[in-house]
Amino acid sequence: MDQFIEQIVTGLSIGSILLLVALGLSIIYGSMGIINLAHGEFVMLGAYAAWVFHTYLGLGLLASLVPIFLVVAAFGWVIERYVLSLLNNRPLDTILATWGVGIMLQQAVRLMVGSELRYVQLPPALSDSMSVFGIPVSSYRVFLFVVSIALFGATWLLMNRTTVGMKLRAIIQDRSVAASFGINAKRVYALTFAYGAGLAGLAGALVSPLKSVSPDMGTGYVVDAFMVVVLGGVQSLAGTVASAFILGELSGGIAFLQNDTVAKAIVLLAIVVLIRFRPEGLFTARVRA
């Protein structure tokens, strides 16, 4: 029984990390429909920003979260404004462009700070483990869980309870009609993309003390993020949350029973099969077309 609970808690923790990484993509891909292959590099930039703030400015991870969000969001804004907005409505070109941007970011980081692994310190206050349902769990993982839920809440509020969110939803439904009502679609798109990028940056910073920081760390995360968003169903924030935790429990569980190699293969296979029969994903927002 203990082992079972232990494994459930582990799955929740893996799920919360998946959610963190996928949340930004859920906005950019799920809502705006931009297939952003540079998502993993935004995650990587966030991790490097954490390293820079820590190494050169002496800021702890927690203190630098807000500046990291702003820095990566600014990056996202620039890329939307000067690359993607010029390619509006051309999905194939956008895929290629974001892929190219991703490669350039990787190489730029490599040229500027070198390709060795970097070290981001675990916040000392969270470096111990605590007891959850009688099971020892790393405090930092509990913290990540709370943060991911909080970020989801903030994003949900932003999309559903603010003017920017309302404008975005209007644009998604029909861009030209929204524009004729005086909504500046360009500006809203740029801001939303920046927000999504900022979330990805936060995710990178937050996972960096548990994992490792290197120029090509993004490659793995972009795959995870797309799996979560596609499984959850595009345009569905709640679906992203559900699918993140489903995937977390599933891969954690299989890894426990078998091993991580098998888990990776089975999870991917399951998603492929599911998409075959439910192309819209598990959860779809009902939108009147």
């Binding site: 082992q3 582990t10 893996i14 954690g252 569980g253 426990f256 888990a263």
Partner: peptide, 19 residues
Amino acid sequence: EYVPLGHSEFSSVINKIRS
């Protein structure tokens, strides 16, 4: 046990080590 190259999520491995 073998994990995929570049693997970075060891919670299940750690549970197995514990048990």
